[in-house]
Design a protein around this nucleic acid. Structure first.
Lengths: 185, 185, 185, 185
DNA sequence: CATGAATGAGCTTTCATTCAT
DNA sequence: CATGAATGAAAGCTCATTCAT
């Protein structure tokens, strides 16, 4: 019943995610976060040592899920079917809880670039790319891996002007991404 | 003879582009721009009314070229071959003078979103998308249009970790983009 | 048997002294003190009402010892020999447990000036000076009293760059201080 | 007539010196400095890049004068008479424009220790000490050099409770300092 | 054309302190 | 005895922008 304990910390994360997604990391000030929460800035600093730590704490959730996908893939044979399944799982990720997060990571890369969070994110995406196309493979294959992921991103949050539900868009994007990395046969 | 007139203005644009591309629009201050130029901030303000105006002036170059591509396309029949040619022309654009600009527009979308420059940019990209897939067409086609453009972007500046020249990457990206929007036949 | 009572209080005093000596009173935060102790800030506040009270509690030790020296001196005739003995006793003080404390009082006078602790300290030093030179005596004598004390301070903690042991330095300083206040004869 | 040019910069230095001397470097905020000046904080930052730079700019004046004394001494034979003259010149310095500065450097050593300004200051004082006692000389001589300088400091600003004019105090302190380093003969 | 000087608003962060539990 | 949570005030600093000269 007494769930107050972690209430504020979670509330901060929640509000921060909302604002980061809305306006970007840079443009979101701690004043904004704390005001929308009805607490003081100092209260936020009680729960997180720095602004970046909020971001990190947010990102880690998503990154852990990406790691899961990659880890699973590495325990499987490197077949086309597995690659398709990787895309499907990553697509699911983008549609889940972390949608907003993923979006603002995509859109606000510049703002995050130098932060630890940015480095970490790039590392994980690289791992993911590495599953779809190992470093030794030819240029077109490399490119296809990256573009396939981009396709999923477009489906998840860059194509909202298209007249379709989120579901439909994500599904269509998955199809396309799978086609891009090559036939499953 | 008197080419002094635009000298400083051009220098500002040049330095600003460099810095915007390097660090993003937000993170580049007027102090930085003017210092790297050896001028005072006030001097910059003599040439541009606001910081955003510098960005706008930079973007307009690129946008005009995009408009040219779209205008040309609209004067042609809406065939697959034309769509391929549109992609080729846009790819050329990305490889030209405006590469840096295009990159930072891609990476720093969040920073620009609310600015007039951001609105303008989105409008033009929408026009371009409209050439590759008219609004009435089915979801997959819509998606393919957007992803094809993304592929070109990836080829131009997001795939620099791939072991290949810029030229090769852009060429491969064009091939892929054309494949994505559908066969030329 | 139950010595727990003062355990924490003593630990706080000990850590605080260490940090005050290292970084000065101002630059030492309660967070630092409590963290190095593995306790919460609130725990510190249970034992001391304010930060200054920690300082005061620390200083009182030293000040009491100074008082002892002065009290003893006042019960003796005002001879040169007594003055030399006073210097010897004060020198011993500086070499004892309270060295660190004395040092940071010397170096951080500005930080403490307005605090009650600062006032108190100045009062005691004034008493000490009063033993070495009564207010009525001529300027040079007054000065000698103050400089003699300074000499002891230099010997105790300001001359650590000299190649000698603490012992040797303090001994030499005592000799010099005694010479400064005048011959024992 | 138009002396406005450097007016503000000088005013900042002047007010800062006053406040630093009064309350110490740490306890003086930029808000205080700017408010007492009737300008905004940002105006101060226009003239000095950081708070420390104000301090540095203040200290350099004094340090340059100390250097002059040392440089002169090094061009002379290392006699007792020269050492006495060095003390006299340094005493004059302490009585001049820079009195306040010297005082707060003495009192606030802790606050400055880690700053570049602190390092610089210690370097110069060390040079001065080196004139009065070369590193190879025995412990008592080393000590006498340091204590002699301290005596001058006491005369300049730590003995204001003595009933005498600044002049008289400084003069008496010089006599004492010269006696401490040894006879001129 | 350009500068020197200044402003107002905002930022992230730290601190001593309080209090219910 | 001690903690977790929070606060109010302040700090140093940066930025886009303005304007008289």
């Amino acid at each position: 019943m007494d769930e107050r304990r972690t209430d504020t910390r979670e509330a901060i994360r929640s509000v921060a995610l909302e604002l980061f997604a809305e306006q970007g990391y840079d443009k979101t000030s701690l004043r904004e976060i704390s005001e929308r929460l009805g607490v003081t800035k100092a209260a936020v600093y009680y729960h997180f040592k720095t602004k970046e730590e909020i971001l990190l704490s947010l990102i880690e959730d998503f990154l852990a899920q990406v790691d899961d996908v990659v880890d699973w893939a590495q325990s499987q044979p490197a077949t086309a079917a597995i690659r398709h399944e990787v895309l499907r799982r990553y697509s699911d990720l983008l549609g889940g809880r972390t949608t907003q997060l993923a979006r603002f990571m995509q859109e606000g890369q510049a703002a995050i670039r130098d932060l630890a969070a940015g480095t970490e994110m790039r590392k994980r995406i690289d791992r993911l790319v590495g599953i779809l196309a190992t470093p030794g493979q030819p240029l077109p294959t490399q490119l296809r891996a990256r573009v396939a992921l981009m396709a999923l991103h477009v489906g998840a949050f860059a194509g909202r002007d298209i007249d379709a539900t989120d579901e439909q868009r994500r599904h269509a994007a998955l199809q396309l991404a799978q086609e891009i990395v090559g036939p499953a046969s």
